[in-house]
């Protein structure tokens, strides 16, 4: 693609974004998470490799479908030249227009996927027509999975799946992660690094992450309260007095 065509494509894409933001209320800015002072917020989107990965599948599918359409058209043309000539334009239309749409859709999907991570929680937002947003605190996380297929590994990306308790959705329902008990961080380059960060948080946590209503005693590892100490002191005084009385 020449420089001018690329600029034109970028301009059209910008315009499309303008329409989406203005008329379809697609938020352009990354999502935020409320944080206290001094806490760091990490806001990121899938790695560049994820875009290449999506495009690879796009080109493969494109090629298969368009070759199929072309073969059908050739068969029609051989059977009846007139029908072939008449159908040439519609066939071209069917072959090209969906491709353009899905190519734009891939870019939109990439540009609307955002991940926000703080020391305490994770927020994932994705979607253009239907915008899904998931918020999970690390306190509630049960396990973290890293998935990557051979093609994903070639592009240096992996999917990070953060699961909480509960059976919501299930494996099959997980596409899009709408109302499942998990957050899927798709197509990131530093998945092991992110996993280690989250796992470190989990290890520090003293609860099972099941919404323990009263976990005061589980905190800080201190089992002695002032009352305990006071009682102990009184027993000690009592035994000391007893010993003294016995010796006398």
């Amino acid at each position: 693609m020449s420089g001018r065509a690329e600029r034109a494509a970028a301009w059209v894409y910008e315009g499309l974004w303008g329409v989406l933001a203005q008329w379809f209320r697609v938020p352009k800015e990354p999502p935020t998470l409320p944080v206290g002072a001094g806490e760091e917020v990490m806001s990121f989107r899938p790695a560049a490799g994820f875009l290449s990965y999506l495009k690879l599948w796009f080109w493969i599918l494109c090629l298969l479908i368009d070759v199929g359409i072309f073969i059908i058209w050739v068969v029609i043309f051989v059977k009846s030249a007139l029908a072939g000539v008449l159908l040439a334009l519609p066939a071209l239309f069917i072959a090209v227009v969906p491709d353009i749409f899905s190519f734009v859709a891939i870019h939109l999907r990439y540009d609307t996927t955002w991940y926000v991570m703080t020391g305490r929680s994770l927020r994932i937002r994705r979607g253009v027509w239907v915008i899904h947003e998931t918020t999970i605190t690390f306190e509630n996380v049960q396990n973290v999975k890293v998935h990557s297929g051979p093609v994903q590994r070639y592009f240096g990306i992996a999917n990070l799946v953060v699961e909480t308790a509960g059976a919501g959705g299930g494996e099959g329902h997980g596409k899009g992660g709408a109302v499942a008990n998990r957050g899927i961080i798709e197509g990131v380059a530093n998945a092991p690094d992110l996993r280690d960060r989250i796992m470190q948080r989990l290890r520090q946590s003293k609860t099972a992450g099941l919404g323990d209503e009263d976990d005061h005693d589980l905190r800080a590892g201190a089992a002695w309260t002032r009352d305990h100490l006071q009682a102990l002191r009184e027993i000690r005084e009592e035994t000391a007095a007893l010993r003294k009385a016995d010796a006398a």
Binding site: R120, S121, E139, Q204, A220, A222, R226
Partner: peptide, 27 residues
């Protein structure tokens, strides 16, 4: 979100153990 567990600093004790019922680390 702010009412959720782990949204605020809960792994650290929120108040110093001054009240009678609060845990103290004076083992």
């Amino acid at each position: 979100y702010r009412q959720m567990r782990g949204a605020r600093g809960e792994t650290e004790p929120q108040v110093a153990g001054e009240a009678a019922g609060e845990p103290v680390s004076d083992s």
